[in-house]
Amino acid sequence: MTEQIVHLLARLEDSTEAEVIDATARPRHGDRKALAKEQAKKIAMGHKADDH
């Protein structure tokens, strides 16, 4: 039983070496219509037109 747990932990440790990409760091990709709609929604909520 202990041997199985050690083996499982070793496998989990190996799987954490893969690079993790943070969702907030990814570049946004979207089509013009969706981006324009989102911009209009933000302006309607009171944001300035040039806010990022």
Rank of each mutant, 00 (worst) to 15 (best):
R11E: 12
I21R: 09
I43T: 05
Q4E: 13
V6P: 02
K41N: 06
K41G: 02
A34E: 04
D31W: 05
R11F: 04
M45K: 14
K41Y: 01
P27I: 00
G30D: 03
H52Q: 01
H52I: 06
L8P: 04
E38R: 10
D51N: 07
A34V: 04
A18G: 06
E38I: 10
E38V: 05
D50A: 04
R26L: 15
E13P: 03
M45L: 15
A49N: 04
I43Q: 03
H7F: 14
A36Q: 10
K37F: 06
L35D: 01
R28W: 09
A18R: 12
R11D: 10
M1F: 01
D31I: 00
R26M: 15
T2C: 12
L35K: 09
V6A: 15
R11N: 11
H52F: 02
E38D: 10
D14Q: 15
P27G: 05
L8I: 11
L8Q: 14
A18Q: 10
D50L: 07
A44H: 03
K41W: 03
K42V: 05
K37S: 11
D31F: 05
A18V: 12
A36N: 07
D51M: 07
T16G: 02
E13R: 14
E38Q: 09
L9G: 10
L8H: 13
K41H: 04
R28D: 05
L9P: 04
M1Q: 04
L9T: 09
Q39E: 01
K37M: 08
G30E: 01
T2Q: 13
A49R: 08
D22C: 00
K41L: 05
E13F: 10
I21V: 14
H29A: 08
E13C: 12
A40S: 00
A10P: 00
G30A: 02
G46C: 01
T16K: 15
A40K: 06
M1T: 09
K33P: 07
K42I: 07
D31P: 03
G30T: 03
G46W: 00
I43Y: 00
M1R: 08
K41P: 02
